[in-house]
Design a protein around this nucleic acid. Sequence first.
DNA 1: CGCCAGGTTGATTTCGCTCAAGCAATGTGG
DNA 2: CCACATTGCTTGAGCGAAATCAACCTGGCG
Lengths: 243, 243
Amino acid sequence: MPCRPEPVSPTPCASCPVRGETEFRGMSEAALDLLDRTKRPARYLPGQVLFHEGDDSAGMFAVYDGLVGIRKVDAEGNSVLLRLIVPGETIGYRSTLLRAPHLTSAEVLQPSVLCFIPSATVHAMVERSPGLYARFLERAASDLRSTEEKVLRDATLSVRHRLAHFINTLSERYGYIADDGSVTVEIPVSRQDLAALMGVRPESMSRTIRGIEDEGAARFTGRRVEVPPEGGFLSSGPRVRGL
Amino acid sequence: MPCRPEPVSPTPCASCPVRGETEFRGMSEAALDLLDRTKRPARYLPGQVLFHEGDDSAGMFAVYDGLVGIRKVDAEGNSVLLRLIVPGETIGYRSTLLRAPHLTSAEVLQPSVLCFIPSATVHAMVERSPGLYARFLERAASDLRSTEEKVLRDATLSVRHRLAHFINTLSERYGYIADDGSVTVEIPVSRQDLAALMGVRPESMSRTIRGIEDEGAARFTGRRVEVPPEGGFLSSGPRVRGL
DNA sequence: CGCCAGGTTGATTTCGCTCAAGCAATGTGG
DNA sequence: CCACATTGCTTGAGCGAAATCAACCTGGCG
């Protein structure tokens, strides 16, 4: 449905505002130069798929701006959204570095600017700066940590508490605090994807939100949540199962 | 409850039967020599804890023989068994390499022989053989993959199907095929841990097993399962939700 | 012997799924 | 410009799977 990625004029990596958070921080001039010459920055629209599970990797993507979702689908067509990728993070590093097929698919969720970095460039860079390996290992470890935490949350928390936790983490990036202390958070994904992110059916998501609204713990309007001060919803945090 | 680890006489790494599957395959003589001089092989008994979540890492463990479980516990005391570590795998590499606290705990589940490798040794080795980083990245990627698959399975499959899948994977290491084609699998963990591995309560595990027995899809006796030929249970594989 | 942890069973409840319909917003072709 | 699909979200009714709470075995082990 959406159109092709539209190339944008490259920002030099040296002055890239998010590079300091990527694996490409602290690299040599030469390596940075190679990156500058071969990267392909482009604008992507929601719905565009960067790669599918099983595809061979042509390279990795660095998120400059926007939001991308990592999805995994089983044989019966059930799917979960494993995680969201925000600016400063990279996508597809595993497949590129290990020259292995993708194990997940990646789909643009918000209008985004991504730098595509061809496999050859990545391999050339890790050859020259061995420190890069350590960075990617950190990234892998971080992804592993968050996925393990997700396993634990999904196994022990109710949908409601999982949602609270998710909105809590969102609030760091997508939240604003009003004068009265209430917090408004912009949820950057559709209801369906929100459900896929919590590992439940869309209907269950709807009902959970309904329940929260009914008791006034928060107000959902479209993709916006408003949590009252001393939010009966967020600050309650993960408690016992039935609350 | 169980006693201390009991040191065993070291097998030289050069003739270690499982080294070919570890990250320490294909290393230089010198590095291997360092490993030989500083590793501390010992025998461990079920129940012994190698480290707790939050502990600083003193080094990593290589599993020579036996079985270790990786556990994660939340604030309310709920816990899941994230994965089992079998011979040829390493434990605690993340914390050691990144000099970060452990994010999970590790508990011996079967009588085991483990080589403890002090942090200093690990760091000295990765300094000298940069290829080691690639190996650990592979390991991290592999752990990430299996954890992502677990998220998907837990979200989409019934307890029964998750159990079938688990026994299926166990059968590769712990299964024997009888003359009549039936498969017997040794389950190397307690019922409690089996439940924690599936992310359910022990009672639910009991009932699930009961249900499978009642319809003759398999026979459970203690820690042994016998699945009849053309196993109505394993080969059925993950199907629809309700089967 | 009595205790205790691990495991099973029973009764009940609750949560989330299924199937089905309804509804608003958007798009499309005549 | 209107009739009509389509898509995303919500709601309802009923069901089923797993949690909860509680009791009760069983086999080690002091």
